[in-house]
C-alpha cells in the first residue's frame, strides 16, 4: 500500500498547489497536511488531533516548510532527528527561501533534500515530479 506524505505547510494556497502538483504527476499517495510544526509532531507522535493514531505507520516522506507559526521547520526537523523512532525519516525542505543560511542550516539539522519553491507553477510541478520519482520510487528507504 502507498504510504502517506506529510506536508507541513501553513499557507493554504501552497497546500493546494503542492497537492495539485503531486497529483498532476500521478503521485497519488495520501497527503496529510499539518498546518504547523506542532501539528506535524502531533501527527508523528499520535497526539492532539491525531490522538490514538498508529504511530508505527510513518509517512513515506515529509515535505517541510521552514517559516511557520507556533513551531518552525528547523524545530520540527530537530525533533524528528532526535526521536529514535523518526530519526531515519526522509525529510525534504520545501520552502520559498533562497537564503544560503537556511539551506546550510537545513542540511546541518539533517534534512535529506532542500527544494526551493519556484514562482513559476510549471517549474514547481516539475520539481514535485522529480521529488516524487526520487523519494518514493528510486530511493531505498531504511524504514
Amino acid at each position: 500500500m502507498n504510504k502517506t506524505i506529510l506536508l507541513v505547510e501553513d499557507n493554504p494556497d501552497d497546500q493546494l498547489l503542492t497537492k495539485a502538483a503531486l497529483e498532476m504527476n500521478n503521485i497519488l499517495n495520501e497527503v496529510v497536511i499539518a498546518e504547523n510544526g506542532v501539528e506535524a509532531l502531533d501527527f508523528l507522535n499520535g497526539q492532539g488531533k491525531w490522538e490514538g493514531r498508529n504511530t508505527d505507520e510513518l509517512p513515506a516522506l515529509v515535505l517541510l516548510d521552514l517559516n511557520m507559526p507556533k513551531m518552525g521547520g528547523f524545530d520540527v526537523l530537530k525533533h524528528i532527528r532526535a526521536n529514535p523512532r523518526t530519526e531515519l525519516l526522509p525529510v525534504v525542505i520545501l520552502t520559498t527561501s533562497k537564503e544560503d543560511r537556511d539551506l546550510v542550516d537545513s542540511y546541518k539539522n539533517g534534512a535529506n533534500s532542500y527544494v526551493k519553491k519556484p514562482v513559476d507553477f510549471d517549474e514547481f510541478t516539475n520539481a514535485a515530479k522529480q521529488l516524487g520519482i526520487y523519494w518514493l520510487m528510486v530511493n531505498e528507504s531504511p524504514l
Partner: peptide, 18 residues
C-alpha cells in the same frame, strides 16, 4: 521579501495555471 512576497506570486502563477 524572499518568503512573503514570493509566496503570493507563486499563488497567482499556480492558480492561473491550474
Amino acid at each position: 521579501v524572499s518568503h512573503d512576497l514570493r509566496t503570493p506570486l507563486r499563488g497567482i502563477d499556480g492558480f492561473s495555471n491550474l
